[in-house]
Write a protein that binds this DNA or RNA. Structure first.
Lengths: 156, 156
DNA sequence: ACCTAACTGTTATCATACTAACAATTGTTA
DNA sequence: TAACAATTGTTAGTATGATAACAGTTAGGT
């Protein structure tokens, strides 16, 4: 494990722990506020659709960084719950566009301020500069990993 | 979504994307180098045991930031693969201590440099100061979240 | 000693992450 | 046009993340 100033720097563990706390807090926030019939990830899809309705599944997967089987399953659930509906695209019959229902829009409107409040909590006592630094460093690490990942790809 | 300098700052999404790249790269590294019969998470247990053998399951769970059911399952798998063995503690019969087998130690020795190489890759072109900053900001966010999480806990 | 609370590992259940493989559709190219 | 490749959504299977509930064990308080 890399050491700096005699401090162990295991980024994987740090990210796992932070992500774990993040998930727990998000779940708790939803439950405490009566949004206990939907998960944080499912809500992410609803919130995305409030920004741009009618995306198709692969677009949703790419934007949210998830894979298509996952999106299929989550959208199945959201459709069963009546929050979204699938609609065939006549110009490309492979595509299923996803739209919010009225119920789905209502749910997103209720949950949006909860997400905002959680974002505010996680950035408490942090300056804008610190937040930007954190985001940029995460992106730098991701870029490094993706480059290395592609290198490995070519090695195979 | 919080905006700084007109840039969207969705830490949850950034962490999810980075963690996803991290997982993919880790998995690929193991497969490319012939360690395809073990997962990154299972390997984490083996590497921990090389630092301190004979930990019991709850200790492993706490150190790695996982829950006990997960550890039970992963250790079941590792035991089936012959990489670890459970041993009852006579002084406290609730406890099962976990030890590396010879096979497990060999596996860990083979995989350790792969993990080190991946750590080096993710920190490429980053100064020690940047790395420390990233770790400290992640910890700060985690602390914020945990405080907020406990607050919610009390509100219930 | 007895009762209760806490701890440890386990099982069951559900949601997510990921891969492989597939059918249907569309795009490309010889 | 015919053959092949790529795209889209789906299904199946495995591993992980997380919670609830349980039996066995230990610790604490009366």
């Amino acid at each position: 494990m890399k050491k700096i100033n005699n401090i162990n720097v295991d980024l994987g563990l740090e990210m796992a722990l932070t992500a774990s706390a993040y998930r727990a807090a998000g779940k708790k926030t939803l439950i405490v506020n009566g949004c206990d019939n939907i998960t944080r990830e499912q809500l992410g899809i609803l919130l995305l659709l409030t920004l741009e309705d009618g995306l198709y599944q692969t677009q949703i997967a790419n934007i949210l960084g998830k894979d298509r089987p996952n999106i299929t399953r989550m959208i199945d659930v959201l459709e069963t719950k009546g929050y979204i509906r699938r609609e065939k695209d006549e110009s490309n019959r492979r595509i299923l566009k996803v739209f919010l229902t009225e119920e789905g829009r209502k749910k997103a409107d209720i949950a949006k301020p909860l997400k905002d409040r959680m974002n505010a909590a996680q950035y408490k006592n942090m300056t804008d500069e610190e937040i930007l630094t954190l985001i940029n460093l995460l992106r730098k690490v991701r870029k490094n990993i993706e480059v290395e990942y592609e290198l490995n790809n070519n090695e195979v």
